[in-house]
Design a binder for these strands. Sequence first.
RNA 1: GGGGGCGUAGCUCAGCUGGCAGAGCAACGGACUUUUAAUCCGUGUGUCCCGGGUUCGAGCCCCGGCGCCCUCACCA
Length: 486
Amino acid sequence: MVELDDSRSLREEKLRQLAALGLPYLPNRFPATRPSTEVVRDFGALEGSRVRVAGRVMRVRLMGKAAFAHIQDRAGQIQLYFKLDVLGSEKWEYFKLLDAGDIIGAEGTVFKTRTGEVSIGVEDVVLLAKSYLPLPDKFHGLANVETRYRQRYLDLISNEEARRIFEVRSSTLRTIRDYLNNRGFIEVETPVLQSLYGGAAANPFTTHYASLDADVYLRIATELYLKRLIVGGMERVYEIGKDFRNEGFSWKHSPEFTMLELYQAYADYEDIMALTEDLVSTVAQDICGTPTLGFNGHEIDVSPPWQKLTVRDAVQQYAGIDLKTCRTVEELTAKALERDLELAPSAPRGEVIEEIVSEMVEPNLIQPTFLIDYPIDFPGSLLAKRKAGQPDIAERFEIYVGGFELGNAFTELNEPGDQLERMEALARESGAEVDLEFVRALEQGMPPTGGVGIGIDRLVMVLAGVHSIRETILFPLLRRREEANA
RNA sequence: GGGGGCGUAGCUCAGCUGGCAGAGCAACGGACUUUUAAUCCGUGUGUCCCGGGUUCGAGCCCCGGCGCCCUCACCA
């Protein structure tokens, strides 16, 4: 009947033929539909009654004068049964001009087939949107990683696993918000474009604001602004938003990622540990129905309480080095080099410890662990308060699950003098600019405060059991590419 | 940025030692009124990522490039 070379013009021709039948097609709306899974779930009540559904045609099995098709909607799939006798010859012709991939609306009677599948005996069908392009393999789905990311819609259409991951992500965000909102936290939004960046150690993305003729940065953290809000009396604040770090991609790093940061006044890092383990286990229970998660070949139990391990004990346990007796950089560096660690020749003590921890400790922290009490000169402790009576220890913890870092937290440094000194020292070493306005906010008086930052993408990785951060990001950044599709 | 791997039909993938470009699904034509990875009969898939080179002959070998994946490095 139709003899055209490519599938697109074939489908265009089918649409013309369908239009020529004079029946309704491509309406602007198709209201009052039920989700597919609701029809299946409520079969007992719906059997024999008329329902309307809509979705994408995924597979068609044409058998002469009858046909089965599955449509997919946001909830799942349902089978439709088309029969010449029921539809009448005109509508039957209309149906036969539809293609796999088309979006259709259907109305009909709920019944169960001989093999027991809840289905809809279609009495009326309408084309809602034409698909001019073929679907990926109906059995294998779409496997090509690059295509899955560049054309994520195809991934979502054809791979149930992709839909599942992003449902987990959505539920994670919703559960976290519910949890925090119920505990008196308020959600805020702080600037993404900043004229001075800070709050973490990372290279920023730089852009230019024409109106001010000034370079501005995409934020690398929300910390310094959220603490200003604590100074302002908000007491319990959180932000869930994108941070941007101009660094390499890896299975656990994305240049653009989502971070939860929360701050609670009158709390210290012990309180924040309790909050964190309760939050994460609540989210896991809510989303997965269990505190036991499969991740990267491990069974991870996020039920509280989590193991607490000081950096000193961890280094003793996993590297066999006693930080208490081994006090000079030279001694420590020698021991690290004995263990085949790579170190810059003049690395300061804090960096040597960091190298030991990241190489020999972290990969072993599979079950949820609070690694606590960092040496004050350990990189990343700039904004952490000193432990009472132990000025060389920062009240800081990092969360490890499955051998990788999930979050970082402090009893927040609220002494402006100490903060300024430490920022100035860092500025001398690394050239980082001191955020004097932040220090001035501390001078106004910040209550004792605990705070934590949790990588949402990484949390979703653990909750969904996927090993690549890109799997948790709908549209991961890819190099631009010429699309040569005709 | 370094190292390794991959790129073949719309999709999933084979392709041997360099010798006519392959299969399944999808598509198209036909049969079939409860199928479900429907089945049966028939048809065609193509910038083998791009550009050079070697060769009588390149999907395969060599050089250069592009893209993706893994890994290392970077990551107060």
